[in-house]
């Protein structure tokens, strides 16, 4: 029979080890995705804030409708608030797509074939909707 204190000690050591295993096992993909998502939102918020600063400093009016995909580059070159605002929104919409792409890459790196296949289908669906949006 083992003393309760020893048992408790063993159990807590087991838990610590398990927790460490959880963290290291899934660390790479999770950290990458977390950064992608965070960065996407931050860049989008930054672009939107910049657009409003431009508008307040007299760079042009805040637009009523979003700029078409194709017109965004020329608006950006002319430094209009409409261009930056639309770019911010497009960056935000593309953030989840980028995260799917990033997961696909990391699954491929781990040679996890079924999951590469699964994320490939998801990415294809997203491309279809992008094409539907453009067309």
């Amino acid at each position: 029979m083992i003393a309760p204190r020893v048992a408790l000690d063993r159990m807590s050591r087991g838990l610590v080890a398990l927790r460490r295993a959880v963290v290291t096992e899934v660390e790479d993909v999770n950290r990458l995705l977390s950064h992608v998502l965070r960065a996407g939102v931050l860049v989008a918020v930054g672009l939107i804030a910049f657009a409003f600063l431009l508008a307040w400093s007299g760079g042009g009016p805040v637009p009523d409708a979003a700029v078409k995909f194709r017109a965004i580059p020329s608006e950006l070159l002319r430094l209009t608030p409409a261009g930056f605002l639309s770019l911010g929104i497009v960056v935000l919409v593309l953030t989840p797509v980028t995260s799917v792409f990033a997961s696909l890459l990391s699954f491929a790196e781990e040679r996890d074939r079924p999951l590469v296949f699964v994320s490939g289908i998801v990415l294809m669906n997203l491309l279809v909707s992008l094409l539907l949006g453009l067309g």
């Binding site: 639309s86 497009v90 949006g133």
Partner: peptide, 11 residues
């Protein structure tokens, strides 16, 4: 994507 390209998003 589809809604954005139809011009419904108010910036």
């Amino acid at each position: 994507f589809i809604y954005y390209s139809r011009g419904f998003v108010s910036p």
